[in-house]
Amino acid sequence: MRRVLASLGLIGVLSLALAVSGEEVMKKVDARPNPSAMHGVMVMQLVNKQGKTLTRKIELWTKKVGDEEKMLIKFLAPADVKGTAFLALKKGGKEEMKLYLPALKRIRRIAGSQKKGSFMGSDFTYDDISNLGGMKIEDYNHKLLKTEEGPEGKVFVVESTPKPGVEASYSKLIVWVPEATYVPTKIEFYKKGKLYKVLQSSKIESFADGKYLIPTYLVMENVKTKHKTILEQQDLEIDIEIPDSVFSERFMKR
């Protein structure tokens, strides 16, 4: 009996392998067109275990040209952080980050170690926010764990682990990818092998006549603390012309 079960299991694994691999699924995720530039407002609600809520509001500009990625965030609310600006510039595997603090009237180069820290007290890290556009799939090994049937049809469940030598915030990710859209709807983040956070994305909206499918409602929950962050994207403008001068110290101060 055990041999039969083992054989069935093997057949199952083989059939999955024959159908599609984790690598192929993630390549299709990566192949989905990503906007070259984006501007919008994000409203973040931080909900604690008791259901009490704090609200943050930010304005975001992103631009991608080749291997160069630029992101500027301006904090709009609450009032005590209004005017604070965060600039992240990525190029050729290097990333520099700067923060403008209006109270100090000074732009500070900030430590890369802050990337792993909480973004405005939320369950997202600075790294999570800058990777919202998608992770670098070539930095990970991908394994198809299973397929599921969901409301959106067939869903691939892929385990992604960072390749040796890659600096990653998480030890493992498990990603749910519907075959119909190849837009991940759920990601489990693991640290030291233990489930740490779960990200669910919904309200997938179509932009540029269906060229882009972008989830505009994200919920990240910390499994241990039961704290969650709801991130809603509003007034999104896609593929607009954003001059390079936006991603500068001068614009941070304006």
């Binding site: 520099e96 500070r108 180069r109 900030i110 430590a111 890369g112 170690s113 802050q114 990337k115 600096e167």
Partner: peptide
């Protein structure tokens, strides 16, 4: 001056 750097395998992201 301000210099951002890392010490591989020891500390990432110092200023």
């Amino acid at each position: 001056f301000a210099l951002a750097f890392s010490i591989p395998d020891v500390a990432e992201g110092l200023v």
